[in-house]
Structure formats: structure tokens, C-alpha cells
Nucleic acid binder design. Sequence first.
DNA 1: CCAGGCTTAGAAAGCGGTTTCTTAACTGAG
DNA 2: CTCAGTTAAGAAACCGCTTTCTAAGCCTGG
Lengths: 333, 333
Amino acid sequence: MPTIYQVAERAGVSLSTVSRVLNGKASVNKALKERVEEAIKELNYRPNAVARSLANNRTDSVGVLIPKRNASVFSETLQALECTLRKAHKHVVIAMGDPGIEAEKEAVEFLVSRNCDALIIDSETLSDEYLVNLNQTTLPTVLLDRHIEEIPDACFTFNNEKGGYLATRHLLELGHKSIAYLSGPVSKAAAGSRLTGHKRALLEAGLTVNPQLIFNGDASENDGERGLLELMARDLPFSALVCASNGMASGAIGCARDLGMRLPHDLSIVGYDDMLIAHHLHPKLTAVHHSRADMAAIAATYILNKVYGQTHHIQPSFEPSLVVRESTLEFAN
Amino acid sequence: MPTIYQVAERAGVSLSTVSRVLNGKASVNKALKERVEEAIKELNYRPNAVARSLANNRTDSVGVLIPKRNASVFSETLQALECTLRKAHKHVVIAMGDPGIEAEKEAVEFLVSRNCDALIIDSETLSDEYLVNLNQTTLPTVLLDRHIEEIPDACFTFNNEKGGYLATRHLLELGHKSIAYLSGPVSKAAAGSRLTGHKRALLEAGLTVNPQLIFNGDASENDGERGLLELMARDLPFSALVCASNGMASGAIGCARDLGMRLPHDLSIVGYDDMLIAHHLHPKLTAVHHSRADMAAIAATYILNKVYGQTHHIQPSFEPSLVVRESTLEFAN
DNA sequence: CCAGGCTTAGAAAGCGGTTTCTTAACTGAG
DNA sequence: CTCAGTTAAGAAACCGCTTTCTAAGCCTGG
């Protein structure tokens, strides 16, 4: 690998001049500039990124921490981040937290020790305090799908309340009056908001919220099955079901089928968020959609602006929408 | 951030001594060593990875190129790579090729320009010649799911022939005699091998290979549907179908259902490779499975040995296996 | 008791860039 | 024509660490 020194030698100039040509910050004589550029081509020279980083105190790399969650969440997010950042010549260093707070802290440490310029974190586990501290004292950090009071600018979240609202309103518009709900863990803000939206839709429609129609699970496929069984055991008839995650929807659908129900005729089901699952289930699942890709791209752009002094326009718009597929049907008596 | 110099000062030694303590390569006086370690703790010192890289001419980073293919392939591979490499304190820099040879070359360039120590590439697009040259003249490179004659050691592939064989043999064992086959693009080695395996199973069972029962598609869901329709139009009865990709299996299942067929009673279907889809389809899809995670982990370990002089034992065993779910049934005349 | 061999610590030279500082040359105004 | 004021190129310091080189100190054996 040729160095800047060899380029200078070949062009008959000092290495400062070569550097100036490379960075274009200071003016250099046109003739010299051309000689340098020629030398660069002839030697097939490429500046050493490491040396540059050392001198600049900047690595042009962004650390990304995504837990080993389900495949589609993971890859959609990462693909969008990588794409946005690479266009700006930043690279993505990745760490995948094993579940567990210690493992995730270690992953963050790992990223920090690699001298990333910024961090993008998607974690439910790490504490507010830790993240605020990280952001304020160590590295600029943005959070995906999470909100923390102290650092609102650094947080990017979906409008889960609206998502829950949309799901339920869709069913209401189809004429359903008795709508059950499989909730994710309400200790998590996202699950709580979705449920809030569900309730708002009911109230707006003049209906009452019946806690007997709400099941609290952990968002897993397994709990989808358990939830449906338990709701049915409560002996309160319902013609539609909102699942706050597509994993639960998948479990519920399988369970319903095992029970001999015909879908969507006997039960309309709305799911949430995982488009890959939604597409492959049968019936194809009507579900609330929000674009993790959009969120990721915006978060990455925010970093570009904040850390690298770029000036992209950001329009933080990633509202949920409802994608109607085949799992919901008009209420027929 | 404290530097090694400040540590030296505080410990009252030279920075060479601190360096030696850090790297443990040369012996240092026990008392001094303790003083240094104390100073490190007190200052909360962490060596600067960039400076270290510059001095060592080594970044401890491995570039990974994975095309933006389907989510589960992507994330399974990446998760395994990251996990294996991080345990060895190497980090993963990621680039995602947009489809297209130029975009992928650019992505490789990007990784090379970041001074990665090695490359792990999963690409169907890049030419043999380019990859051989890359491996031999630029950076140690390993290839995932691809075989190139000139650099056999650097290639890690699945036994697709065996996979195709297993799929078909399963159906034969269930008593099926007339088995249709939806193939991926035979120009790709993997698809060709699977088909070869399929044929071998037929021949072994004393059956003949009927080209009328083979459809060549592009592995997409869409072509699964097209394929099934075309095969049925050929008016040659078949009781079972092998799909060389789960995408096609998904398309075929949807199509079969639209045609009013009952699965698996009217048609047994075997799929290939994507466990996520296989799980969520209905009926749950019996499919050939091979572990991309295993392959990725082994490839990463190979890099660890070759580039970083480690000495892990490698046992390159990732044979395909058949996961029987619900989409295949005994042939009942 | 002293020469020779080892061990160990410090000084200094890189690694490959960026940037400040210096100086030489050139500009234009008085 | 001279002198202050710019401009542009080179010299050198620096980023933080590793490693070679040098030399000091110790031990051992003759």
C-alpha cells in the first residue's frame, strides 16, 4: 500500500501539499494539484483510514446495538441504517446484545472501545439512567423505539397509541361490537400505549371497556394461543380480536384453527407490526404497520446532522397505518 | 480520555513500560506492574483502539457483505458471525450490497477502504475472477454459500445435492411415486445441485425422471404460484411437490388453496431452507433445513485461525437435514 | 573481584495521516 | 520602487500506541 509520503515524492511536493489536495480545504496551485492527482492515480493510492482517524479523532463509524430479536425487525432496521450511513461514507459496526442487561452493557462497552463516533441503540433492557448517562458523558446516542424524558431529541418512537387505535377502529368500522384484545406486557411502554389506543377507539364508539376481554401476555406465539383459550373460557362472546403482536396473532390463528373455527368468518383478527409473518399466515393477516426502515433512516440522518455536522432535512414522520389483508371481515350478525 | 502517557506519568514509569504491562508480552518488574495497573484503574484508562491499529497495522475488524436478501437468511448469518467474532474481540463492519454487481463491488471497496483485516462475503453476483483476485491480492476473504475451484479453502457451502435428495426421499418413503419439482434458477449452482439430488433419489427408487414434472422458476413466491399452475396444466398427475425454496413453497401453497385443494391431503409439499416462513405457513411446512448459523460460525472461526493466528478446532459439518412438519402425508391412492 | 551474559526500563523511531507554524514569493498600493 | 499584506508550499509537531534500540543494573562464574 502506498502512503501519502510516496505520493508526495512522486509528485515532487511535500506531503502537506498532498494532504491539502486530498482534503480540499486549503488552496493549492493548479499545476501542483494536477501532478498530485496524477501521482495518486498512478500509485493507486488510497488514504489510510486508520491514520486519518487517529489524526482527526474521528472514525466515521457508528455503533449499532440491536438485540437478537426476531429476524425481520432486526434486518429491516439494520438495512436501513447501513444504507443511510454508507451513503454518507460512515460505516456501521454492529453488536448484538444477547438478552440480559449485563450482556447489553458489555456490547455497548465493546462499541465504545472501538471508538465509534456515535451509537444507535435498540434496547428495552438497558435502564433510562444508563442510557442518559451514556448519551451525555460518553457518546452521542440515539434510541430506537424508546422514549426517555431527559433526552427527548435522542429518542425515536412509533405512535403506538395510534396503532392500537387504528386496529380497533378498523374492526369497529366493520361492525364488530365485541372486540377482544391480546396485549403484550403492559410494563413495556409500547404495549401499554397500544392498549390505550384500543380503549380510546372503543370509548369513541360509545362502547365500554370490558377488562374480561383483555388478556395480558408476553407477545409470544405461545401466549397468543394461551390468550385465545383463556378469553374463550371466560365465556364472553366476541367476534373480533386485536393482537398486539404478530407473534401472538400467529399463535391465536393456529389455536383458532385447531378449535375448528373458520377464519375470518368466525373471528376477525388484527395483528401488529411484523409484515413478514403477516404475509405468510393464512388467512393473510390484517395488521398495523409501521416502518422501522423509515425510523432507522431518520435516526441515522439525525446522527449525520448532529455528529458529522451535515444538514439534512429531517421530517420525523413514521405514523402507523393499517394494512388490510384477509383476516378481517364485516361483522355478520 | 486519558492516554497511555498520562498513565505512565501517574505510575512514575515510561510509557513503554505501560505498554508492556498492557500487552503482557515482555516481563516487567512486579512492583512497577502493580503501580501501572493501579494507575490504569484510577484513571479509568482504556487504550485507544485507533492508535493501536495504526501501530499494529491491524484493525481487529472483519468486513461482512451480505446482500439485501430475505430477512431470515440475513439475520441468521449475521448474528452468528457477530457472536463468534465478538467473543474473540473482533468487530463486524457491515455492508449490504444492493442488488447488482457494481453496487456489490462498491460495497467491497468500502469495506477494504476501512482497513478490515478480512472479509466474509455472501454473494451470488460477484464473479469468480473478482473474488479470487480479491482473496489473493487484497484481503483474506471467505465465501459463504458459494464454491470456487481456485480457492476451495475459502469457500463454505451447503450440501445442496443431499438436501434435494432428502426432500425427495422423504416423499418416496411416504409412498409417493409421482413427484413434481419447482426448481430455482438452474444457472445457480445451488439450485442445480438440489435438482440433481432430487433426480438421484428418484433413480435410486427405480423411478424415471420426467422433465414434464419439473418447473424452472426464480425462487420467488410468485414463481411458486406460476409453477404449480403450469405443472397442473401439463396434465400429468402428481401427489407430491418439492419446492427448492420456501418462497416458492409459500406461493404454491397459496395457489393450491385458491384452487380448492386440501393440504396436505391432496398434495404433499416439501420446502427448502427458510425456517421462519416454514413455521408460519399453513400447513406448517416440512422442509430441508441447513444451519446458516453453523456455517457462519465456522467461517468466522476459520478467519480467526487464518488471520489472527488462533487455533480453534474446526469441524466443517453442516449437513442438511429434513424437518418434518405438517405439509407432507402418506400417499393414499 | 571483574568480565560477560541476562534481564528490564527508558528513549526514540516509527505507523500514516492532519494541521499549525514558518517562510518564501508574489500582489498591489502609495 | 518599496513595503505591507496575501497566498501557497514546506517543515515540523502531533494524534496514541508498539517496538526496536540502547543502556543500566544485576547475577554468575572463573
